[in-house]
Design a protein around this nucleic acid. Structure first.
Lengths: 154, 154
DNA sequence: TACTGATGGTCAGTATACTGATCAATATTG
DNA sequence: CAATATTGATCAGTATACTGACCATCAGTA
């Protein structure tokens, strides 16, 4: 019988588990308290000032119900501002604060180190291949989860 | 600046997200209600009758605090029994029930189909390579998360 | 054997994820 | 333009994950 630990789904879970642990450890060592999810959201807000939550969710493939809580915490930490949109009164426009910008800048080396550490068992060539294959598999399965990647509108 | 969607950690998250969604969809289509985590635990209990929770956690690389809830739900669904160990009164011995065995057998095709679907964007060769690279990266990072894989004792 | 340290399990608290519902506001269309 | 459909955001509920603490028990040692 096929071992559980040979199934792609199980391997995906384990790799992600390690990736998150490494990320949190590196970021904490650097003196910050930010989760992978919060980091991705913050970086995306910086790159797309004024975007609304649904667009943000699409850009990083998060469920929109998850985004609400993530932004809550980024706002609470003073890294992001959420204000009502003037164009669409349902929407919230997101902006990064100066504090958020500073944090993002300071945290980048730790985030990059984390990426290297989670792949430390692989050669550079293997690491590139893994990344390529993950990207390809994800592209093919994009529509299969509730939170597919969406290009920015306009 | 490097895009978020190019980082291995982010790709890990997305792939896992898709893997879980595919798993749940296939299993539900087959008429069952079991999560990936519950499935892995159940299969491992069947393969190692009478094991305790910490050992189970080690065999599938789960945090032991997570196991408590997972077993709660398996017991509540009537798929697993949890009884006090006679050898060590701290420990709980886990057994699969007949119902659990039946479920496991009936659900296997759906689980295997899910593995194929989550890799549908890759050729067979690429799928094998992805699996190999994940396994290798995971082996190297095993000790980096709070829930490393542990061989069975004895 | 009494003490100390390690171990199995649980719990409280926090942070993703997702299902499905709801509300307000915008778009669409007959 | 009124009825309908869609959309942005949130919420309640459930299921992983993890941190750190705790208790009962076991194991090793002085």
């Amino acid at each position: 019988m096929k071992d559980n630990n040979d199934m792609p789904g199980h391997l995906a879970r384990r790799f992600q588990q390690i990736a998150v642990a490494v990320f949190l450890a590196e970021v904490e060592d650097a003196g910050f308290d930010l989760t992978p999810v919060q980091y991705a959201a913050l970086a995306t807000i910086k790159a797309n000032p004024g975007l609304d939550q649904v667009t943000l969710a699409g850009l990083i493939a998060y469920d929109r119900t998850t985004i609400t809580g993530v932004i809550d915490r980024l706002v609470q930490k003073g890294l992001t501002e959420r204000r009502a949109s003037s164009r669409d009164r349902r929407a919230r426009e997101l902006e990064i604060t100066d504090e958020g910008r500073k944090t993002l800048r300071a945290i980048t080396p730790a985030v990059e180190a984390a990426q290297r550490i989670m792949l430390r068992g692989l050669t550079d060539k293997e690491a590139n291949e893994l990344t390529r294959l993950l990207r390809k598999a994800i592209a093919a399965g994009n529509e299969l989860s509730r939170a597919p990647l969406r290009e920015a509108p306009t």
